[in-house]
Write a protein that binds this DNA or RNA. Sequence first.
DNA 1: TAGATTGTTAATCGATTAACAATC
DNA 2: TAGATTGTTAATCGATTAACAATC
Lengths: 209, 209
Amino acid sequence: MLGKEPKISNSVIRRLPIYLRLMQLLKVQGITTISSQDMGVRLDMNPAQIRKDLAYFGEFGRKGVGYEVEYLERKLRQILNLDRQINVALIGAGHLGIALSNYARFQSERISIAGLFDADPNKIGLTVGSLVVQNFSELTNMVQTKNIQMGIIAVPAIAAQDVCDSLISAGVKIILNFAPINLRVPKEVVLRNTDFTTELQSLAFYIDE
Amino acid sequence: MLGKEPKISNSVIRRLPIYLRLMQLLKVQGITTISSQDMGVRLDMNPAQIRKDLAYFGEFGRKGVGYEVEYLERKLRQILNLDRQINVALIGAGHLGIALSNYARFQSERISIAGLFDADPNKIGLTVGSLVVQNFSELTNMVQTKNIQMGIIAVPAIAAQDVCDSLISAGVKIILNFAPINLRVPKEVVLRNTDFTTELQSLAFYIDE
DNA sequence: TAGATTGTTAATCGATTAACAATC
DNA sequence: TAGATTGTTAATCGATTAACAATC
């Protein structure tokens, strides 16, 4: 079962949650079946791309008919591992951390913030939603006891590499970083950066012209 | 001057702020000259790509020597329009909005949040940093009087399309959206989405394997 | 001069789109 | 059956990387 798959690109993976979200929306709207053509119109994407993306993982559609909304939703959840509980550690209990913590809980019940950490003594012990801010020094401990698989870094740039190193040495292999800094990670770690400053600066290019 | 340029891709534009940030760091470190080779090592990128990216905009390096850090920084700022004041409207004064508002001011002095808006009567009038939360109904007005060129949407998904439409009809052509929804915009508007939920869901794919 | 490094062209790689046979 | 739509192969497009002449 290993080593034979055609190695699916990150571009494809990043589109899957878009499809999943559309399925959820269609379900609410009472639509039970949808063609790639129609998905393309709604998402402003090429239908061939949608079919090709889905075909990497199996044959989910029916020729002449399209995709069954509930079935495709279930399949997408399976592919993305969203059919099981995922535990996340969130480091940084500033405004961003609090926003993310609320956000995440709201959106997808299966991805749960299992621990919220900060190094600031003034923040430790505070309650955020259903969580209590824990001392950052507890991180390694909690990663093990709470079976944490993903880490979110929401601390200032200056502290980010330290936090990143701690996550990795505690065994976390998947990291989402919000600090504006290029983190160094070993190649087996999956790191994604969401850098607000960089986004804004690149958008500034389009001013005027 | 119009219509002759080779049309620079978004991939290239999005790397420019990365180069800019490196120049700022090198300057602090007292490094005055750097080769694409060395930049590549520091950013974990291919040096040929770096040279090609920069060459779209001019000849900034010296053969046999490399790039002069201060000069390249200045040029990158010019290319990205960061050599002038940029005014941004931020809609949504929740935790995310407040985080973004602090973040932006901290990072890049020339991109300034010129107005912070919310529709919630309980939030209007509150002070966030140096800003006072304004009624969302003031948006159109402020876009004109404050010469606002960019909009940031940090409201719940349910309200995002309305906010987006208001920004566009007020004349804003560049929008950064944080709400987890596919917004509809006319093709002359530049829209970028930063969707935390989608990021997290796509990262979940890498669990286990 | 000899060594280093750019700017740029050509080669490669990968991702998107078109086309269509299979089939519901 | 006739019309619609998938899954997939082939064609196209675009982005990345290699290579090297020019030159500091």
